[in-house]
Design a protein around this nucleic acid. Structure first.
Lengths: 186, 186
DNA sequence: TTTACGACTGACTGAACAGTCGGCAAATGT
DNA sequence: ACATTTGCCGACTGTTCAGTCAGTCGTAAA
């Protein structure tokens, strides 16, 4: 396993536990099992490490959602598959999810270029536009719809983590909450 | 104006801009226009200041929602008033809102006693229970319903801040989004 | 065999920071 | 009038940390 990845893994774990500034680079290096200087060999500064970690996680998340939710028979099924894929990813990657939330509520977010954000959102916006054009979804602004959908995903994830239900029950909550979501936007 | 409040105000502004650990106590004191040591006269440690700020903001927020949303004719109106009061408070107190979000996604949250949380949630849970008993709201677990409502509030607030719409348009978005929320839970 | 290279090391440093402390001045009590 | 407390000050300190740098080691090209 290469040391860059070891450093990212260690950083993820420690950042979630102690926060960005509560985690010294020395501890990250120690946890990764590499020398102090190696961290700065791969990342020029601590900030660069934090941003790199965010970008890394985001790309993995997008890849997962994209793979598990392409082309379904009906529009509703397509949306549902994306909702499910997002939630299952979040459940299986809680550290990553919590890191992303911490990052989004931190001043580091400003270091992500706006066009990069937009690019990653585009597929979802296009999908929502199609749903409106076909009169399946209510004609609200797509960015408002997107905000509602993602905040609900976030909320249900929080709920599932707090409750710690068995797998079957989890699936039921996710399904039910999707129907509620669907009722909201149609 | 007392120095304790000056310190809390300064801390709020700086924490939102630079993050908890990106803000040295010396800068907080400077911004508040008091001496360095005065900060430690009122708050034993920096952590205590952070937690105190959270508690202070939370109590002001609850007070505002409580004052603006008591006893309305119908159940729906009561819920709506609370939703509106929360959103208008968030719009008028964006620094506070962002601080709270940052706090919730940080390790400091662990320093808030669970029973304190529960106590502040109790009135909302009771209200939701009543709605279910009267068969107005779908019989979902109340904490799930609460999560959905608060994450939607959070989401719409994010949306409103990002869009920066005129007041009238803002009100329209808030109203519409409430109807969507209502469609979801009934 | 020699040279060159680049990944990696870890002791080190300068700066920044949280928190201390001795003291001052004004208010409050006696 | 004096004593005591309280609110406040800001220079100071011990520690911690991000980032540096001189150098090691294995590999691979010359």
């Amino acid at each position: 396993m290469d040391k860059k990845q070891l450093l990212l893994n260690a950083a993820l774990k420690l950042f979630v536990e102690y926060g960005f500034h509560g985690t010294p680079t020395s501890l990250i290096a120690k946890e990764a099992g590499v020398a102090n200087g190696t961290l700065f060999h791969y990342f020029k500064t601590k900030d660069e490490l934090i941003v790199a970690l965010y970008v890394d996680i985001k790309s993995r998340m997008s890849a997962h959602v994209f793979e598990n939710a392409r082309g379904h028979a009906t529009f509703k099924e397509t949306v549902k598959e994306q909702y499910l894929a997002s939630l299952y990813w979040a459940l299986d990657n809680q550290l990553q999810f919590r890191f992303v939330e911490q990052f989004k509520n931190s001043p580091y977010l400003a270091q992500i270029a706006p066009q990069e954000m937009e690019a990653s959102l585009k597929p979802f916006y296009d999908m929502l536009h199609k749903g409106i054009k076909d009169k399946i979804i209510k004609p609200h602004p797509v960015d408002m719809l997107f905000t509602l959908i993602s905040s609900q995903t976030y909320g249900i994830n929080q709920y599932l983590i707090a409750q710690n239900l068995p797998k079957a029950k989890q699936h039921q909550v996710i399904s039910e909450s999707f129907e509620m979501l669907w009722a909201m936007i149609t």
